[in-house]
Design a protein around this nucleic acid. Structure first.
Length: 279
DNA sequence: AAGAGACACAACCGCAGTACT
DNA sequence: GAGTACTGCGGTTGTGTCTCT
C-alpha cells in the first residue's frame, strides 16, 4: 500500500508516523486475520509488525474485535436481543462491553451503535414531550445505584477445576468459623456480580451438570449453582436449577448443617427477566 | 437525475485501570 | 512506591448508503 494508492482510496495518510488511518482494505484484513490465526489474540503491540501492517496496535485490535473476529453476528437485532439489551441497559447503564457479553455474536460497538441510533435522545427522533413521558414512567436510576461489575480477576494458575476445589473448601471453611474475606482469599480471586450468563459461566454450567459437589442447597429450600461471588456487600450470581439467573444482594451466611444462604435482614434478589422495561 | 438529510456502521481519540519494570 | 507501557472501554466523529423531495 503506497501513499498514492491511499490518496486514491480516500484514506488518510499520516506522513509523520507513516501510520495509516481510515477504512481498512481487504488486503489489510487478510493480513491481520492471518496474523491472528498464526499467533493468536493478544500482544497487540507486535501485531502490526508481525502482520506487516502500517496501523497502530489499537486500530488492529479494534478491527479484529469489532469486525474480523469469528462468530460476529451481522444484521438487524432480533426481538429478543433488543429486549435483553433494554433490560441490561436498565441494569448496567452504558456498560456496552458487559451488555455485549450477554448478546452472543454482538460486539460492544454494535450494541453502542444500535442503542445510540434507536434509543439515544439525541438521535432517536423522539420528541421532547415523548421523552418527558418516558422519563416520568420509568423509575429514575442513580449512578450509585447501578451495579458496576468489575472484571473477574483470577490468579494466573487458576482454572475452573481449581476454582471448583477452592469453592468446596471455602464453603467448608465458613462452617469452621472463617471470615468471608478468608474464604475469598481461599478462592484466590475477587468475583464481582455478573448478571445474566456469560459464555464462560455457561461453559461452567455445562461442566457442573451432574457434579453434585458444586450443586448447593439454600436454607430456604432453593437449589442451584453459584457462578460468582462479589466483594462486600456480597452480590452473587445464583443460577437456579431451572437456569434462571438470579442476582443476590445481601450478607452471606452459613449454617450448622453446612448449607449456605443470605442473611434475611439484608438480602434481596431479583430475576433479570422480571425487570420491567418501559420504553 | 440530483441534492439534502437521515441512518447505520466503522473507526478514532482520550481516559482509566492494570501490568510490568 | 513510582514511572512507564499496555489494554480495554466509552464517547465521539467520520463515512458510505439509502430515502425522500
Amino acid at each position: 500500500m503506497d501513499r498514492s494508492f491511499a490518496i486514491r482510496k480516500g484514506v488518510h495518510w499520516d506522513r509523520s508516523f507513516a501510520l495509516r488511518k481510515g477504512s481498512w482494505t481487504e488486503e489489510e484484513d487478510i493480513r491481520l486475520r492471518q496474523c491472528i490465526d498464526k499467533y493468536g489474540e493478544g500482544n497487540w503491540r507486535l501485531v502490526p509488525l508481525k502482520a506487516g501492517l502500517r496501523r497502530c496496535r489499537k486500530s488492529c485490535r479494534l478491527r479484529w474485535v469489532n469486525y474480523l473476529r469469528p462468530n460476529i453476528k451481522r444484521g438487524e437485532f432480533e426481538e429478543d436481543e433488543v429486549d435483553l439489551l433494554l433490560r441490561l441497559h436498565k441494569l448496567l447503564g452504558n456498560r456496552w462491553s458487559l451488555i455485549a457479553g450477554r448478546l452472543p455474536g454482538r460486539t460492544s460497538n454494535d450494541v453502542k451503535n444500535y442503542w445510540n441510533n434507536r434509543f439515544n435522545r439525541k438521535t432517536s427522533g423522539i420528541t421532547a414531550s415523548e421523552w418527558e413521558q418516558v422519563e416520568a414512567t420509568s423509575p429514575a436510576i442513580n449512578k450509585n445505584e447501578l451495579i458496576k461489575p468489575r472484571p473477574w480477576t483470577f490468579p494466573k494458575s487458576s482454572s475452573w477445576l481449581q476454582l471448583r476445589r477452592n469453592l468446596s473448601s471455602s464453603t467448608s471453611s465458613l462452617d469452621s468459623g472463617n471470615t468471608r474475606s478468608d474464604s475469598r482469599e481461599m478462592l484466590g480471586m475477587t468475583c464481582p456480580i455478573l448478571p445474566g450468563i456469560t459464555q464462560e459461566e455457561s461453559t461452567r454450567l455445562d461442566q457442573l451438570e451432574g457434579n453434585s459437589s458444586d450443586h448447593k442447597e439454600l436454607e430456604n429450600g432453593e437449589s442451584g449453582y453459584i457462578c460468582g461471588f462479589a466483594e462486600d456487600p456480597i452480590r452473587s450470581l445464583w443460577v437456579e436449577d431451572d437456569l434462571q439467573p438470579m442476582i443476590e444482594v445481601g450478607n452471606y451466611t452459613s449454617s450448622e448443617e453446612g448449607k449456605i444462604g443470605w442473611d434475611d435482614d439484608f438480602c434481596s434478589d431479583f430475576n433479570i427477566w422480571d425487570m420491567p422495561v418501559e420504553w
